[in-house]
Design a protein around this nucleic acid. Structure first.
Lengths: 299, 299
DNA sequence: AGGAAAAGATCTCAATTTTGGAATAAAATG
DNA sequence: CATTTTATTCCAAAATTGAGATCTTTTCCT
């Protein structure tokens, strides 16, 4: 039993899917399957029940999950505890609105407990702006959306900027379009029966992806809103389709079952300047790494 | 970082020697070295300082030791927690006096906490008798000394009995001769300036090893005593040399620095009947396995 | 001192394990 | 009923591990 098996198990348990977990931990599905099977026969017990293609935790799997969580946390703590230099100072982290809402809280609170001497300065913004700020050394690192291959052509400048920086995949988001309750399901933008897309600021990669998708078959304009709450409110009026990662939607207790339409899978990457990595950055990076597989919140 | 690395680290930390640790965990020294080095560069820190052949924990190593202990304990608990059947009933365990004194207490107390439903019945005795009792099904398993190769010829019957049973190495003991304070160091039994060997009952393998060693160059008789305390008291009189594993000697706060003479390395093995293994036995076996590398006591 | 002897590190090579990719099978979706 | 999604199996390549032999250093014992 080694820690990577635990990490993999955690990811599968969180996503209830081998394929998603594989993406989350940066491996190939067959490998994930193998590791889970190894874990199962090391423990002598079935961790998941596979009825069809659904992976659900067995009773024993649930039990093991609590241990796996503690094991992973303890191992992370051990690694950090032996670090010879105690990092301190300020770390300036840029992040997208969505990441700040869904994936960061758990990691940040753990980081804070572990390294009270590091003061974390969080800046929210659009991917584009964040990347520029990292380059300008106004930020030490940032979590941004990696534009999918098809979009890179449209914005060669952005791509060039990214090439200057180190980049590492951290999360994978399911970008979806949230439709008003009762809206019939759609195949393409042409089926939309709303007046506009509701999204964040122009530099937002998610917005750009949605717009580029919509352009193919319709001529919707975009309503710019300041927050995901505002977007959802706007969707509730029936006049707009909201753009956001599924993880953000899951986070809000959206009262009605809105139909959603998947737009794309978008990687969230951590970018930083290779040249100057402080001790504070190293530990932040490690804590982030450890939260890859885990569930969103303590739940 | 995987659990076997942790187990290996624990063993090296406990013994402060790669070779001893290698024996304890049943591996080859080069392997132990490699694993420690891997651990060190995974953590980015030196765990041991090697001044000469002494392996001493660095400050970081000490820190990591506390985590390693917790990690190993947690992993063991996890493995046991997912066991589908909760074992219960009675488990009859035979053990040598020496093992009961030095190596078992930690394991037994952990076992008790983990499986309060299993009542453990401990029988003390000599290896020979214990083996017979396991065969006769008067015991479920026993911890006995494996007679070294050279002694098997003298006792073909014992060997034959052992062949009927499953056997697995669990500990390695340094069998030593404890000499009275002030006794000059010896090369062979001929240098002994005492009247007798002080040992336990005749069936005791340790005693038989010592006697067979003594026979080669001297004609000492053996004083039979009932306990290791009695043996040490007898050594203190100056008239006898005591026979016991080093771990037992270390355990007693023997006031003076008695010279000791190493007699042999003797494996302690767990024997049981392959045919009937209860659930209770399986978990006992696992707890024992986990305590292989760890230090003797909580200390 | 000098010279074994012992212990740890290191090197090399074989065996095992792990990994990623393609192909396959099974199940859900529409 | 076809299409897509998902887990798994199989296979080859890569990485890790484990064992023996050798080398170096220290310790211990004349």
């Amino acid at each position: 039993m080694d820690l990577s098996s635990i990490e993999i198990f955690l990811a599968v348990a969180a996503d209830r899917s081998v394929t998603k977990a594989a993406k989350a931990v940066g491996r190939v599905p067959s490998n994930v399957t193998t590791r889970i099977q190894q874990l199962e026969d090391y423990l002598g017990v079935l961790l998941f029940s596979r009825d069809g293609k659904k992976m659900t935790l067995t009773r024993e799997g649930e039990t093991f999950l609590t241990y796996a969580d503690r094991l992973a946390a303890l191992a992370l703590e051990a690694r950090q505890a032996v670090r010879p230099m105690r990092p301190s100072g300020t770390l300036r982290v840029g992040t997208m609105e969505s990441t700040a809402a869904s994936r960061l809280p758990a990691a940040l609170s753990r980081f804070n407990q572990m390294w009270p001497d590091v003061s974390l300065q969080l800046s929210l913004g659009a991917s584009r702006d964040l990347a520029r700020d990292v380059l300008r050394e106004a930020l030490d690192c940032a979590l941004i959306a990696r534009p999918p291959g098809t979009m890179l052509d449209e914005d060669a400048g952005f791509e060039a900027e990214l090439m200057e920086l180190e980049a590492e995949p951290v999360f994978v988001e399911d970008l979806v379009l949230v439709l008003p309750p009762g809206h019939p399901s759609i195949r393409s933008a042409a089926d939309l029966r709303v007046g506009s897309l509701a999204a964040l600021e122009p530099g937002c990669t998610y917005r750009r992806i949605a717009e580029s998708w919509a352009r193919k078959s319709s001529a919707l304009h975009t309503t710019e809103l300041g927050s995901y709450h505002a977007i959802l409110a706007s969707v509730a009026t029936g006049n707009a389709a909201g753009v956001m990662p599924k993880s953000v939607l899951d986070l809000m207790h959206w009262p009605v079952a809105s139909p959603t339409h998947p737009l794309a899978k978008v990687e969230t990457i951590l970018i930083y300047r290779k040249s100057d990595r402080s001790g504070a950055f190293d530990v932040f990076h490690e804590v982030l790494e450890a939260s890859k597989g885990s569930r969103l919140m303590a739940s």
